[in-house]
């Protein structure tokens, strides 16, 4: 039983990293990524492949996975985030489909069977097959992510990002390069998703493309909206709730996606600030409402 709770805690930790990073994109780029699971998958496959084929240590593979995912994020962000229109959602949706296609078709990724026997991390005498140690490892990365994001949000760059979020044109007038900021944030978020992917691969030790599809991207998006768009604590809570709830309602597993879809619409209509949204984002949305009318 303890094993089971540890497992849930570890999985929650991974989703917290994913939700936090997606929340960065939503809260600070004002756009949605539907390819977050693809970055997660890229991280998982990168880390798995280099540890299997080159016997690289997990502790080196983890940052490499993050960098690879971040580079893909940069490649997608540059053509998409320079533009005024909201193309990111559909471009990342397409990216997710392509990554899926490539993982299924390449020999090196094992096609639909995926990769098995991914080595669990080892450090000195510590064996991370013990779930307690793995949970500690995940908790460290979650803490790192939380620290990084809260430092970022409260720094000079964080203030620039808020200025862009609240009124992009004014921010540009003040000399803030909005596109560069958005692309950097998107790249960072992709890298964090890669980090989570690596942790997932070495925990489960078996991966296939199924775990990194649109379903997972939508799940993470629902976590962010449920917790509150733009709220750091909200993403943590949203990820926790949506990891634990499906475990309690195993019998209704077939209805999961249906519930997420309905939940997204219902939340946006009745509680757009989510469970823990401080109202900042909802105020932002009402600000944007007046602005949209004026600009039209």
């Amino acid at each position: 039983m303890t094993e089971y709770f540890l497992h849930i805690a570890i999985i929650s930790g991974l989703y917290i990293i994913l939700a936090l990073s997606l929340n960065l994109i939503i809260g600070y780029c004002g756009q949605v990524s539907l390819g977050h699971a693809a970055f997660y998958g890229l991280g998982a496959y990168t880390s798995a492949l280099i540890t299997i084929h080159w016997q690289v240590s997990f502790f080196l593979a983890l940052p490499v996975a993050a960098v690879v995912a971040a580079l893909f994020g940069l490649g997608l962000g540059i053509p998409t985030l320079r533009l005024k229109d909201d193309y990111l959602a559909i471009v990342t949706l397409g990216f997710g489909v392509i990554v899926d296609l490539i993982l299924l078709n390449l020999d090196v990724t094992g096609g639909p069977d995926g990769l098995a026997r991914i080595p669990p991390p080892r450090l000195g005498g510590i064996d991370f097959r013990d779930k307690v140690w793995y949970l500690l490892l995940v908790a460290l990365v979650v803490a790192f992510t939380l620290g990084l994001i809260s430092r970022l949000v409260h720094s000079r760059h964080g203030r620039a990002l808020k200025a862009i979020r609240d009124h992009e044109i004014t921010a540009r007038v003040m000399g803030i390069n909005a596109s560069a900021y958005k692309i950097s944030i998107f790249t960072l978020a992709a890298g964090l998703a890669g980090l989570a992917g690596s942790l997932y691969a070495h925990y489960i030790t078996f991966i296939n493309p199924e775990s990194f599809g649109l379903h997972t991207s939508i799940l993470v998006l629902t976590m962010v909206v449920l917790g509150g768009m733009g709220s750091i604590l909200g993403s943590v809570v949203g990820a926790g709730v949506l990891t634990i709830l499906p475990e309690l309602f195993r019998r209704f597993a077939d209805y999961q996606d249906l519930a997420y879809g309905a939940m997204l619409i219902a939340l946006l209509i009745w509680r757009p600030q989510g469970l823990l949204g401080s109202g900042k984002i909802s105020r932002k949305f009402s600000l944007a409402k007046n602005r949209a009318k004026k600009e039209r």
Binding site: V32, D257, G261, I265, K284
Partner: peptide, 22 residues
């Protein structure tokens, strides 16, 4: 949701899509 931040109807549309599909 009309008249709000463009992000809001976009996410709602994603929700509708996954809802109808499932």
């Amino acid at each position: 949701l009309r008249g709000g931040h463009p992000l809001v109807p976009l996410i709602s549309a994603i929700g509708a899509s996954i809802f109808l599909q499932s």
